[in-house]
Nucleic acid binder design. Structure first.
Lengths: 225, 225
DNA sequence: CTAACTAAACTGACCGGTCAGTTCAAATAA
DNA sequence: TTATTTGAACTGACCGGTCAGTTTAGTTAG
């Protein structure tokens, strides 16, 4: 249908690029009509899976659209570009991970137990969204990268939570002053991704608890004996 | 590998690719003339840098050839395909890293000190070949991947060394039996990549020693108090 | 109640351009 | 002589982004 050229005229510029929500930067999600949110959700899920398997550059927008059951044009209607889609995908994933980390009640009963639970939440997230983890480790340390600013911001948001958890431990226990707080944050944060991915790819028989315990070893080494 | 679709069409079936050293699988390097080794070395260096910056799919064979100061035909003469080049690049990098890890004298004086030095060697390697580290974390957990078998083999080779170092510690000190040996290997091995890359990308002010100490925290948490 | 209207949402063919891989005759080095 | 390299042409597929036109859902007018 359509066959282009048909109706001849085309006269007025009528809806030239519908000025859709393409440039929304993550705000006002609630205000958007239900259809759009459903479409965006489908696009997030489809692109997450595909990109996790073959990488950002290895996946085409056509494939993403097809997997989401939507036309290519819709992708460009909802997002301004492939790059935009990725950036919002990163934010989407971090929002989910952050929500889980913050769900850990900091009831100050035992900061070490809270840390344990937080790492467990992270492992669950890696299990549930392995493609996001792959996207993260694939693009995070690229320099220069289109998403450098996005990564810097998101990384900081996540590390802030880890930092708070470590601070709580340091406040409740005597800790080894020789260990740099920042490097420890990075090591634990990074280990969550790596151990989670490694378990999924090479050692599916390893349990969640084993992974958490291994990562927690660094915390137990941090508190003084 | 090398789909080729040789013979058949293309009129004369003669000389389908000069039957050069393209399909060498890493063996017999010594036997190869000096000129070839020099060319291969240049190609390794050039592709390592480019791929580290933009990823495997983001770099073209033409770019690699140009950066190495060599023609595109030479790439296909020395390697059968882009995929082959990557596979051999991975082996090349792992050979270097392995050599460094094995250079740590296991004089059994103190297994913990040996471990410390090994992690230091790993950090030096990440400093010197950051692009290799990026390539590794970008493609390692992809599934399915063209280099899945290559990764499995190389990963095993590297983990064997880490495993031996941990075993030496476990033999000399009382260790926490609740910690799974395998998960700990993975956590330490992965932390080396992540901490090294993170330092280079986001925290260049952090010292080598800080990084090593942070990673070693997990070993100190592993030995009993 | 329903026909007309409207704008947001969506479609998919199409375009300019790129890329991996191939081929080969001629040049160059060992 | 023989292994290696060159450089340029070629192909066939693919890709990101665009845009004229269609559908859908909600609203208003009669």
């Amino acid at each position: 249908m359509s066959s282009r050229t048909d109706s001849s005229k085309a006269s007025s510029g009528g809806a030239v690029t519908p000025a859709g929500p393409a440039d929304s930067t993550g705000t006002a999600k609630k205000l958007r009509p239900a259809r759009t949110n459903a479409t965006r959700q489908k696009l997030f899920e489809a692109s997450m899976d595909l990109i996790g398997e073959r990488g950002v550059a290895g996946v085409t927008v056509d494939e993403i659209a097809a997997a989401a059951g939507v036309s290519k044009g819709t992708v460009y209607y909802n997002f301004g570009s492939k790059s935009d889609l990725i950036a919002q995908l990163l934010r989407h994933g971090v929002d989910i991970l952050l929500a889980r980390l913050l769900s850990v009640r900091d009831d100050s009963a035992d900061p070490l137990a809270a840390m344990d639970e937080m790492i467990g939440q992270a492992m669950d997230f890696m299990d549930e969204y392995p493609s996001f983890a792959r996207l993260w480790v694939s693009e995070n340390w690229r320099t220069p990268s289109e998403w450098q600013d996005t990564f810097t911001e998101l990384r900081e948001r996540l590390l802030t939570v880890v930092r708070a958890a470590i601070d709580a431990v340091a406040a409740a226990y005597p800790v080894d002053p020789a260990v740099s707080r920042g490097s420890l944050e990075t090591a634990i944060f990074g280990a969550c991704f790596v151990v989670g991915l490694d378990r999924q790819t090479y050692n599916p028989e390893r349990t969640r608890e084993q992974s958490v315990t291994a990562i927690m070893a660094s915390m137990r080494g941090y508190v003084r004996k």
